[in-house]
């Protein structure tokens, strides 16, 4: 995560989302294997500082994953 936070500011917006997406996906895949791609896609619409908070706090990430699953099921 330290590598990510130090690399992120010098990356393009597209690259920033890509890097955050890779990290988020690997974490989300552990709890939601079938929906991980869509959940990650949804969460990437959130601003990067919030996404970094999710990577730093598993509890925060899981609460956002739960929200995303609820939205997906309602969709």
């Amino acid at each position: 995560l330290e590598t990510l936070t130090s690399t992120l500011p010098s990356a393009s917006p597209q690259e920033q989302k890509q890097m955050l997406g890779e990290r988020l996906f690997s974490l989300i895949q552990a709890v939601q294997p079938t929906l991980a791609g869509k959940i990650t896609g949804m969460l990437l619409e959130i601003n990067n500082s919030e996404l970094l908070r999710m990577l730093e706090s598993p509890e925060f990430l899981l609460s956002k994953v739960d929200e995303a699953v609820a939205v997906l099921q309602a969709h």
Binding site: P13, Q14, K17, Q18, G21, F25, G41, L44
Partner: peptide, 22 residues
Amino acid sequence: GSSINWPPEFHPGVPWKGLQNI
């Protein structure tokens, strides 16, 4: 428009296209 393709799905190792419309 149709929201049937929402949300964009992220695939590891594949460039994410979700920002194209921003």
